[in-house]
Design a binder for these strands. Structure first.
Length: 438
RNA sequence: UCCGAUGUAGCUCAGUGGUAGAGCAACCGGCUGUUAACCGGUUGGUCGUAGGUUCGAACCCUACCGUCGGAGCCA
């Protein structure tokens, strides 16, 4: 459709109207809500950048134009012209005194009304729900976290080298994978870029991959999605301790940046920002052995050698005022590529980062096994197909070095920063056990 | 896969054996400062599905299906 100007008024984004105070401007957007009386109507307008209230008085515009304002359905698209007026009553500080509107498309029966809705209904209408203020706040914070992570890594000499999504086999062999046809053979959707990262780290030194990963586990909890985004940095010549320092510095930077740049969005979500101020290095370091003792002291029956459940993680995390690294897990419960502690081979040089407030494990990482013979042995012990891992073993054959890395789950981090009940709102179109639509 | 909830109007819910209800949305009308606007009216139902008990079932029983939460697994 053509947008030939009805006037000389400039088209302005709502978040920039303050630069045009007192001037006539054009807004292009959607009607989020309409209230009207006999001689005055209030049009809540949004254009993706913000919200502003347009006010139209019959006495100012006349019968004909005023009539147009009374028959606009919720979420109709329109152009609106009016004078930008500072007003103390307006949430954004400005109102638009309308002189005219042009409805581009009349919407009728918009399903998401100003009243309450259940989550399932809203998820069925996710394509429309994204228009709400709350979803805007969450997804803007998501974007800020992603940008913060990327900026920090790029500024610290990491090279983004993304890894494949279609893979020939399991990276870890333990979890369920989504299978798809790959011409005459099978391919699997990647559950981690980890092993490929080790190859690119040997090529470029410090690398990261940032993209979607897939788990076909039938998990039905507030912390799980079938498709989620993960950032996975990997560093050559990096030991277990340095790896944790990188993680805490990166997270501190991202948290402080979100607090600074997305204060308005955090307010929309009514987030207690004091909880986020605490995301400062150094984080707590708690040996697995001590975590077991801590659980026992709190009355939880837990034997050395087991893995923590969601409830256990919450108890551990709530014992501290900042994120906690739980390190040196039993070798038997961790992946084959983790490096055993040379002084205590029954534990590995790995650490999970537990977020406070019950958000659980947001990072898993550690030092990788760099010894050729031991790696070959562990692949046998885990009954993994040797041919499939030949290239991975090669990395220990040609210039093996100590190296470490980690994977941070984006959606859990977003849920944590935003203070959400469930990760499903942290991604535009969540993929869950019983949801593939829209 | 297991455990526990739950399913009634487009939405959120009430109704626990005797005529199917409310608020909101939609539609019509009224109102000059609303901001989950307000006031009056209209429209709107295979009570998840299939069987059973009963004179009579949204309600009691059985099975199945869907959804939600949790466990396991993980980020």
């Amino acid at each position: 459709m053509g947008f030939e100007s009805m006037s000389k008024a400039p088209w302005v984004r709502i978040d920039k109207v303050g630069e045009h105070s007192g001037e006539i401007v054009e807004i292009r957007g959607w009607l989020s809500r309409l209230r009207s009386s006999g001689k005055i109507s209030f049009l809540q307008l949004r254009d993706g950048s913000g919200n502003i209230q347009g006010v139209m008085a019959k006495a100012d515009v006349g019968e004909e134009i005023f009539a147009k304002s009374k028959s606009v359905g919720q979420e109709s698209s329109l152009r609106a012209w009016g004078k930008v007026n500072p007003d103390e009553r307006a949430p954004g500080g400005y109102e638009l005194h309308l002189t005219d509107i042009e409805v581009l498309h009349h919407a009728e029966g918009y399903p998401i009304t100003p009243k309450e809705h259940g989550t399932d209904f809203l998820m069925d209408h996710r394509h429309l729900w994204l228009r709400s203020n709350r979803q805007h706040a969450i997804l803007k914070i998501r974007a800020e976290i992603m940008k913060g992570i990327i900026d920090w890594l790029d500024d610290h000499d990491f090279l983004r080298v993304d890894t494949p999504i279609l893979t020939p086999s399991a990276c870890e062999g333990t979890t369920t994978l989504f299978e798809t046809d790959y011409f005459e053979s099978k391919a699997y959707l990647a559950q981690s870029g980890q092993l490929y990262n080790e190859a690119t780290a040997m090529a470029f030194g410090k690398v990261y991959t940032f993209g979607p990963t897939f788990r076909a586990e039938k998990s039905k909890t507030r912390r799980h999605l079938m498709e989620f985004w993960m950032v996975e940095p990997e560093m050559a010549f990096c030991d277990f301790e340095e790896n944790m320092r990188v993680q805490e510095q990166m997270l501190e930077y991202v948290a402080q940046r979100v607090l600074e740049k997305r204060a308005r969005e955090l307010k929309v979500l009514e987030r207690d920002t004091a909880k986020l101020e605490n995301i400062k290095a150094p984080f707590v370091r708690l040996a697995y052995d001590d975590a077991v003792k801590l659980l026992n002291e709190k009355g939880v029956e837990f034997a050395w050698g087991g893995d923590f459940g969601g409830g256990d993680e919450t108890i551990i995390a709530e014992s501290f005022d900042r994120p906690v690294f739980v390190h040196r897990f039993p070798t038997a419960i961790k992946a084959f590529y983790m490096k055993p502690d040379p002084e205590r081979p029954e534990v590995v040089l790995g650490a999970d980062l537990l977020a406070p407030e019950g958000y659980g494990e947001v990072i898993g990482g550690g030092q990788r096994l760099d010894d050729l013979a031991l790696l070959e042995q562990r692949i046998k012990d885990h009954h993994l197909p040797e041919e499939a891992y030949a290239w991975y073993v090669d990395l220990r054959r040609y210039g093996s070095v100590p190296h470490s890395g980690f994977g941070l789950g984006l959606e859990r981090t977003v849920a944590w920063f935003c203070g959400l009940e469930h990760v499903r709102e942290t991604i535009p179109f969540p993929r869950m056990l019983s949801r593939l639509y829209p």
